[in-house]
Design a protein around this nucleic acid. Sequence first.
DNA 1: CGTGCGATGTATCGGTCCGATACATCGCGG
DNA 2: CCGCGATGTATCGGACCGATACATCGCACG
Lengths: 212, 212
Amino acid sequence: MLELAILGLLQESPMHGYELRKELAAKLGAIRAAISYGSLYPTLRRLQAAGWITEAAETPATAEEVPALTSRRGRVVYKITAEGKERFAQLIAQTGPETYDDTGFGVHFAFFARTDQATRLRILEGRRRKIEERREGLRDVLARAAERLDAYTLELQRHGLEACEREVRWLEELIANERSGRAPTVPQLGTAGGRREEFSPPPPGESRKERP
Amino acid sequence: MLELAILGLLQESPMHGYELRKELAAKLGAIRAAISYGSLYPTLRRLQAAGWITEAAETPATAEEVPALTSRRGRVVYKITAEGKERFAQLIAQTGPETYDDTGFGVHFAFFARTDQATRLRILEGRRRKIEERREGLRDVLARAAERLDAYTLELQRHGLEACEREVRWLEELIANERSGRAPTVPQLGTAGGRREEFSPPPPGESRKERP
DNA sequence: CGTGCGATGTATCGGTCCGATACATCGCGG
DNA sequence: CCGCGATGTATCGGACCGATACATCGCACG
């Protein structure tokens, strides 16, 4: 998962570890806390060893003559390689069970802009299926084992059940949107307009073209 | 977390590993998938080594004479010890940062029936604080960095923000209930698949006593 | 009658990720 | 000039997961 996230972010622009962590936190803030350095740095080294990312020099030109004395600030900027892009595409497209758990789904979803529509649909439906199963499990417990559980545990289940129901509804909307060929559009919060492209290169700030 | 959950469940009745996993899944189904054996069995051994649980003999009488030949089914039943109960009480009462993350909060909440009211309140408020922080983070991203992110990522944030808002409201209700001295009973909101009862089983003041 | 299969049951191994910790530099205000 | 918070890289032990292996039980189906 981390691997996928890093490869995805570095595709937008080269970054060093610290930056990567912040961007990751911004992009995935909805689904998980900031990633730990204890996972990040080892993973970066692993990706580098595999040839999917490389170190990019930091020096901003004009600095050839005076490198030493106070040794340059130790900042390691990574950029993705061609092999890395291939790897990313492969990881994005290949769906296993872990694609549908909370974190896995969140990471995949966060990179939907770089995912083709068929895969998006497959992932959304897989996620929906998984949440529906969880929902049924909770209903069973509430219906069949209610008297065995105390009021607090029951309340926890009830709250979880409601969350499942909401997420299923959310997914239904996204799936319907996806099938109709439009990008996600949220009614209130004019955050996004409809787009028709299946992916958008680095340049941020998509123009907002209203598509009925 | 696993340690706390096991100690809590074994307080209700002795169980073997497989059973423990199922009960855990039923009790915590709302917040996390079933626990892995790869964590469960090592943890059981650790708890046993610490003296917090012990093996309870399985043999149902009448089996003294003929133990061998086809060796008896290998089922290991564990029960909690007095030290284990102390340990549980200590773990329940002591709140660290991990008490407020998704899993930690869920596990603590699931054992609220064995937690005193002051601690319940402290945990609910800590959780609320944490969710409020997450909510503010998401609002910031949506307000300040919206144009940097693609429509899918924005939709993810929006959905996460909504989930935060709902959870805060839920926590507010629980806190109000708690302060008023009543057990949890949420007015309807009829969605959920099971009917609910309208009572309040655990006597308001203290946690429940030993197995009835 | 047997036989195969799904549920029950215990156990280990490698791998991912986290939390704590350490340490060094930078910029800024007091 | 000094301290302190943000920036930045790095490691270590531990928690937990997913896959896998293996053995037994009960029962449905031929």
